[in-house]
Nucleic acid binder design. Structure first.
Lengths: 206, 206
DNA sequence: TGCTAGATGTTACTGCATGTTAATTATATC
DNA sequence: GATATAATTAACATGCAGTAACATCTAGCA
């Protein structure tokens, strides 16, 4: 998946999966059926309580009944092991293609009273809303997916602007500054903390 | 399918399928790969020119490559014969659950004073009306389904023109420009906003 | 088969919004 | 309190969007 350009997090048991999912936002979930602690079926159910994110179930159990259960429980697709990598990629493609603008799964991201509308490119807080430019949006989306995480400037720059070579600029700072201004006007709060020598974080440190 | 409460039309060859599809609106298409006159792949492609209706391909060919082709050509799912009825039903459920509002809906779309007649390819505003070309229509329909949403150029291109290779981003711009002209003559208003670095939105941001 | 008209796609040039740079002020850490 | 790092502001230039004009394609018709 990473070779195809996707960003990936991995959980090695069901509980870890749910915890990851609770703390960050994902565009798609690949879910094994047989997992330690909590099986994939249960994980799928619980994710479906909170989100409509696309879910693909992977499993060795080829019996038909299982497939039906998996799909009825809320999975969007189902692959039986051993599967072909290209088929997996093709199915991932299909599910992600359904998303408008190739941007995101859930139509909005939330952190505290901030809501980022991923379809309308809008930052909403209570009654008010502010427009974002493309780069501002990308940066904010990235950081709202993992609130409280510290992001290095170089990482932010790479993800939003691409490239790296000869990066000695204050581009990230300026964009953060503009975002801060918009956030401040909306909510009166300072959401971005600078982390000296590293970069930035959204929200306080836990 | 009928026992489950669905209304069903059946075509016994590819041409009949396309003819049925041209004359009626469907919520979902079950498509056999091997068909007389026009094979399923071709039917799938042609349907995709005109519609985003969910398509499930059915086939005896189990080879992986075929699956990939089927999905990349625009099918939403794929079942290998012999399949279990319950699995088919489950997958049908999944796809219908995702059905975007407005697909099987009325014969015209409305946004503010604009009305798009989906059968006559006509754009009506008050007393006046303008004819639209096929591409203009597809683009406008897509964007009127989700007013205020931001659509990436690449997304628009894929949906209206299909495929990516050799894609010229000015094509979308020019079509938007032509639409703008027609809309301006009709209503005196500028409906399309450009979103720098991404694409376009219909209407202002809320 | 060739003619015509309308639709569609491409190119090229202009203006300007946005992103970037640079310079200055503020703040944190030792 | 010194120094290094971050924040802010303003000016600038880049590269994107708008559109006219040209080229190509397609359908309808004789």
């Amino acid at each position: 998946m990473e070779r195809e350009g996707y960003r990936v997090d991995i959980a090695y048991d069901g509980e870890a999966a749910l915890e990851l999912f609770a703390n960050q936002k994902y565009d798609l979930v690949l879910l094994d059926w047989t997992l330690p602690k909590l099986d994939g079926l249960e994980v799928c159910k619980q994710i479906r309580q909170a989100s409509r994110v696309p879910i693909i179930m992977l499993t060795a159990k080829g019996e038909i009944l299982d497939k039906v259960i998996g799909l009825e429980v809320g999975a969007d697709d189902y692959l039986v092991k051993p599967f072909d990598q290209r088929e997996l990629l093709a199915r991932v493609h299909v599910l992600l293609r359904r998303l408008p603008a190739g941007l995101a799964a859930d139509s909005w991201l939330q952190y505290e009273e901030l809501r980022l509308d991923r379809e309308k490119l809008l930052l909403v807080c209570g009654e008010e809303a502010a427009a974002l430019t493309a780069n501002e949006y990308k940066l904010l989306e990235l950081m709202m997916k993992k609130p409280h995480n510290v992001f290095a400037r170089t990482y932010l720059y790479e993800e939003v602007w691409g490239e790296m070579p000869g990066y000695n600029d204050r581009t990230v700072d300026v964009t953060i500054s503009r975002l801060r201004k918009k956030l401040l006007e909306l909510s009166g709060k300072k959401y971005f903390q600078a982390v000296r020598g590293l970069g930035y974080r959204l929200g306080e440190q836990p």
